[in-house]
Write a protein that binds this DNA or RNA. Structure first.
Lengths: 178, 178
DNA sequence: GGACGTTACTTCGCTAGCGAACTATTCGTC
DNA sequence: GACGAATAGTTCGCTAGCGAAGTAACGTCC
């Protein structure tokens, strides 16, 4: 039943780390590293599930919302090429075609061939698409606020500084091999 | 006030937040909350991709490794019921059946019906399964170390304290509605 | 100015996973 | 002890996504 509440101070990650350490005394194992990774995974999973429930309220699936969202927050809001969206979203070109098929059929985006270069496709959001995205936006993010606001503003800033050091190292690393 | 973007350059999250803020001045929007969420998402995605590459070296897919791993680090290492594994891994019962089919066919786990309750199925790891899991373990986690060890031990502890406050709130919340 | 490589997207075959219906076993109640 | 409810797992139909091959348009170099 009440797992976290009766033994207060322990979260799933603590238990995870404890179990793991028991069986792997011989291997290089770092409690803090593993704890941080597991906790971030749990939090992200929570956010993903919360968002899924939220956008479902307006009749969108997670991947539809993600696509519309990525389409809207870019430098040219509401306009993009499939390739750009695919790289931003981290899906394959083939997957992007599928997503756009769904969104186009639902009437949330339109596809037009580029005039100068006819290989290119211009994805453009429709009024209906912008509308439902706005609706989803309005109810989305509450779960995130609720969790992150457990921390004070000061702590949030500290957290972001720590996280950012790591993301910067990841991004720098990713650029080496290209 | 020291925003995350002030000192050491911008990361993707900063750019993400900046773009979003531009188009959503009218909606309740919190830079620090959004930044933290996006950064954790990026890091988790990086870990997932890194692990995928790592376990592929021993010929495992991510979901196979995850399943073996969850099977091994539990209180009764190497033994579990499909339902337990499914809840731990966050997959549906049907999905679990599929995973176990794959692992069983590969010879990494065995399935036996419970003696006292014949509805139950006892999943047990095989020698081959334990073996390949150990191999995967050995090369796994390097990417995580590499990223998290950008921070000092002290910072890692601070990070974990912050993350833990959030995971505890998530876990407490999740138990209310059950 | 035509052959050849490149670019941008789509189609195809396949896989993992979900939700819902189904099967088999056990528990509870009278 | 028998019948209905509950539980554990599997089967089935379907969807999103991947990788590889395919198609169409553009660029280039001789």
């Amino acid at each position: 039943m009440a797992k976290a509440s009766d033994r207060d101070g322990e979260d799933d990650a603590d238990r995870h780390v404890a179990r793991w350490r028991d069986h792997w005394i011989d291997v290089d194992f770092d409690d803090e590293v593993e704890g941080a990774v597991v906790r971030m995974q749990h939090l992200v999973r929570h956010f993903r599930e919360a968002k899924q429930r939220a956008v479902a309220q307006v009749g969108l699936q997670a991947f539809e919302y993600d696509t519309l969202h990525t389409l809207m927050i870019r430098d040219t809001p509401g306009h993009a090429s499939p390739t750009d969206l695919a790289t931003d979203l981290g899906v394959s070109p083939a997957g992007m075609t599928g997503r756009l098929d769904t969104l186009e059929k639902a009437g949330y985006v339109g596809r037009t061939v580029g005039k100068t270069d006819r290989r290119r496709v211009e994805v453009e959001i429709t009024d209906a698409g912008a509308d439902i995205w706005r609706q989803a936006m309005a109810i989305r993010g509450d779960a995130e606020d609720q969790v992150v606001n457990v921390l004070s503003k000061k702590e949030q800033i500290a957290l972001n500084q720590l996280l950012k050091r790591m993301t910067l190292s990841v991004e720098a690393e990713g650029e080496q091999d290209h």
